[in-house]
Amino acid sequence: MTWTAPRIERRRAPSAAGERAMLQGWLDFHRDTLLTKCAGLTGEQLARAGTPPSALTLLGLVRHMAYVERVWFRQRFAGEAVEALHCTEAAPDADFDDLDPARAEADHAALIAEIAACDAVAADRDLDETFTATNGRTLNLRWVYVHMIEEYARHNGHADLLRETLDGETGS
Rank of each mutant, 00 (worst) to 15 (best):
G18L: 04
A21N: 06
H30N: 14
R20K: 12
H64K: 02
Q24G: 06
Y67I: 00
L127H: 07
A106M: 03
D128L: 12
V146Q: 11
H86W: 12
K37F: 14
M22A: 13
F73D: 05
D95R: 05
A113R: 01
E105A: 12
V68R: 02
L162D: 08
P6K: 09
V62T: 04
A102T: 10
G40F: 03
A55F: 07
S172E: 09
L59E: 04
T33W: 12
A109I: 05
T36R: 07
L162G: 04
T42A: 00
T130N: 07
F77V: 10
P6Y: 00
G136L: 13
M22S: 11
G157Y: 13
L61H: 11
Y145W: 06
E114G: 14
W72E: 09
L59P: 06
A110P: 01
L162W: 03
E89M: 02
V82F: 08
P6A: 11
P52I: 13
P92Q: 07
N140Q: 14
A94N: 10
H64L: 02
R103W: 09
I115C: 15
E164G: 10
I112M: 02
S54E: 04
N156A: 06
F29D: 11
T134Q: 08
R63L: 05
R20F: 02
L27N: 12
A122N: 06
A113P: 00
V146P: 11
H147F: 11
T170W: 08
A21Y: 02
T2F: 01
A159T: 01
G25R: 01
N135S: 12
Q24S: 14
G136Y: 06
T33P: 00
A117M: 06
A123K: 10
D98Q: 15
S54K: 03
A117G: 04
G60M: 05
A153F: 07
D100Y: 03
E69F: 02
A39D: 13
A16S: 12
Y145M: 05
T138I: 13
F131C: 09
A91E: 14
E9A: 04
I149C: 00
G25D: 10
N135P: 05
V82T: 15
D124Y: 00
